[in-house]
Simulated assay, not measured.
Amino acid sequence: MLTDDELRAVLRAEAAAHRPDRAAILERATRTTMRNEAARRRGPRVRIAGAAAAVAAVIGGGGVAQWALAGGTGSDRPTPPPPPVTVSASPAVAPSASPSRSSPSRRPGKPTAPSVASAEPAADTTAMGPLRSGGSVEVGGKTRANSVVTIRTGEALTALEVTIRLAGTAGLVPRSGSQQVPGASVDSSVTEEAGALVYHFTLSSGDTLDPGTYTFYARYTYAPGGRDPGADRYAVTATSGSGAALTVGGGFG
């Protein structure tokens, strides 16, 4: 059994006699690396570890030998080299084509046919372009009256509609509607809508009103004691000979 001093002497002698060929070691490591690189190119996945392991073994072995020759103890023994790392080469993934971007679909709106009719004006508008209008009440007795709409146009009209709306009051009963429109045909009607009497006057299709003054009458009876026309309204829509849309309206002051 050799003593510690004799063992150290033997190791020193072996270390002095051993001279590693560093050039040969590097050459072997380079060849190993080149073989691994060629194998990686031939296959989709390779493991590159041989060269690193060989170099680590040589360097690690030399470190342990030097520690032993220097008389080291267990507390200062050099840390062994880490295990070789395996590197996996994955095949490249082709980028996916960008999804085509389509324009949002648009649903065409339903065309609206032009009409001379319109809603009741929100405020009194008694004049527009060549068209003027006015409303009044003619009392024909204790229980009879006419709500009258008069229009004056300085230009020929190819379309015309007059609407008179009488708010429902005590004893209100329609009689008829009439007009003074010489040289043209006008259709008239009376209906009851939402607690009101509504008189419609419409110029017949194909007729034209020449420039002038025209009058429309809504005839009715009411309960004795009088009737307040403050909530009554009228509206006039027309089309001029030049194609302009005209709208006027108001109350019966």
Rank of each mutant, 00 (worst) to 15 (best):
L2V: 03
D5V: 15
D5M: 12
A9M: 10
V10D: 05
L11W: 08
A13L: 13
R22P: 00
R22G: 02
A24S: 08
T30C: 11
T32K: 05
M34C: 06
G43A: 15
P44Q: 12
R45S: 13
A52I: 06
A53V: 06
A53R: 05
A54H: 01
A56W: 02
V58F: 09
I59R: 10
G61T: 10
G61F: 13
G61Q: 07
G62L: 10
V64E: 07
Q66E: 14
W67Q: 09
G71V: 05
G71R: 06
G74M: 14
P81R: 09
T86K: 13
A89W: 14
A94Q: 14
S102C: 15
S102N: 15
R107K: 12
G109W: 14
K110N: 11
P111V: 09
P114S: 08
A122W: 06
A122N: 04
T125Q: 02
T126V: 08
A127C: 02
G129P: 03
L131V: 09
L131I: 10
N146E: 11
S147L: 12
V149G: 03
I151K: 01
T153G: 07
E161I: 01
R165C: 03
A167Y: 08
G171L: 10
L172N: 03
P174H: 02
G177I: 01
T191L: 00
A194D: 06
F201Q: 00
L203W: 00
L203A: 01
T213L: 07
T215H: 05
Y220R: 01
T221K: 09
G226S: 12
G230M: 03
R233W: 01
V236L: 02
T237S: 09
A244G: 08
L246N: 00
T247P: 00
